[in-house]
Design a protein around this nucleic acid. Sequence first.
DNA 1: CTCCCGATAT
DNA 2: ATATCAGGAG
Length: 208
Amino acid sequence: MKEKVKNILKILDEHYPNVRVALNYTNPLELLIATILSAQCTDERVNQITPYLFKKYPTAKDYATADLKTLEEDIKPTGFYKNKAKHIKECCQVLVEKYHGQVPANLEILTKLPGIGRKTANVVLGNAFDIPGIVVDTHVRRVAKRLGLTKHQDALKIEKDLMQLIPKEKWTKFSLQLTWHGRRICKARKPQCNKCPLHKWCDEYQKV
DNA sequence: CTCCCGATAT
DNA sequence: ATATCAGGAG
């Protein structure tokens, strides 16, 4: 397994050397909001509305004091807009009341905020604060499972498995690489195994 | 486990 | 028609 992980990491680095979050942002708050909006929605769609959104709501206080219906309309194209608007407003209210309107760089604090789970928290920590974290989104879950890096379905168990296998300083980049690979090659519906540089090390590919 | 939301691929 | 898309709350 150790050799397998080493090879997978090497191949990922060769093929995806400069991965970056596909969501556009210029500060931790913007990344936090964009990540909440990205739930069950493509990043392109999120990027389409965020230029307008970030201009209209530059600080946490702007979301905290926003009219809920107006905020719903502003984020509508990203889907789940009622839940997301409610989460964003409540989350920013806590940020204003308890954290001076700043995004805390701490996993335990972040995951207690309304609308913020481990996935969103780790995206913000890893990319806005350079604090290593394994991000288990739908792509990471699928690809890690297919590769045979975990047997679990539960996101937290997958996160723990990957934390054991991957060196800490690579957690954030590895998550981004797996997500990117999952989007482009190892797709949910029609995985492009013939184009996949990892298929030698893939459990699922060996089965077929 | 279900619900929230709607666009797009298959 | 149905599954899926950078999930989280109740």
